[in-house]
Design a protein around this nucleic acid. Structure first.
Lengths: 143, 143
DNA sequence: TATTGTTATACTCTATAACTATA
DNA sequence: TATAGTTATAGAGTATAACAATA
């Protein structure tokens, strides 16, 4: 069979990403987190008091989709909202959220370490630069 | 704001992929193709007579999801099914499908060329090797 | 007027199970 | 028994528009 995609960076990028997400999600499931939830939890954990609108910008998740996402974390007692002013709320982790955030970080680190371990030694220092260049290139091409 | 994801290949891989897909989809929309449809069309175009089960393997799309996808292309007069045996059908492009496939290839090539043009010269030959290594690494980690 | 957050809704892709028909 | 394809259904993520309340 002829593979018309083998030489296409865009296609290989996508397949790599999907495969990576699959592996990562499999590690998140046992600790009760979806992918998007984990990114929100980690970002609040690293930035106590962050507002939803900052999460939206940093994670490129739409406002309208962030609302139920955060609401789920609040409902589970992982995050609480602090009134900042009449329209903004600062998000912080509860103790329970802190614990889960620490666990999530462990999971992330294990995942990333296992991935890196599979990358040939001479390529490892190229991984982040190449990915950042691709990200930037895609953004440029979009404009 | 502290960005806990900046050094994580898995995260940057995903953001790059999402951004790349967004740019690509924007180019496909004017020719009336979704992303998954374009991959199916291109793969049939490169492999006349291919069976659905081969598409499923090559593109990592589930059987159950391939059925309506192919059905849409057939309904649009882009693809036709040839009986191979009682349970398999060979897929081929119609003339209309051929034309659209050619157009899609042009779109893909323009997209990839524009992306590559944004990658610093000294990094270009690292892009595919790094992406393939990441794809493979993710597959390994999943097992 | 612009920003923050919410609600409602629809779309795309994906995931799973059960089913028919055929090899 | 295993394979090819289908049907039905649910889930996760995303996209858009309209809205209230506040800066």
């Amino acid at each position: 069979m002829i593979d018309p995609f083998a030489e296409l960076p865009g296609y290989v990028l996508r397949r790599a990403s999907v495969s990576m997400m699959e592996a990562f999600k499999a590690r998140l499931a046992p600790i009760g987190l979806r992918y998007t939830e984990s990114t929100v939890l980690l970002l609040i954990g690293a930035n106590a008091g962050i507002r939803q609108s900052d999460l939206v910008t940093a994670l490129a998740i739409q406002r309208a989709n962030m609302t139920p996402l955060v609401a789920r974390l609040v409902a589970r007692g992982l995050v609480s909202k602090l009134r900042l002013d009449g329209r903004s709320q600062g998000l912080v982790l509860t103790d329970k959220g802190q614990d889960l955030c620490t666990t999530a970080r462990t999971v992330v680190n294990a995942h990333e370490a296992d991935v890196i371990a599979q990358i040939p030694l001479d390529m490892r220092d190229k991984v982040l630069p190449v990915l950042r260049a691709l990200w930037q290139a895609a953004e440029e091409v979009s404009n």
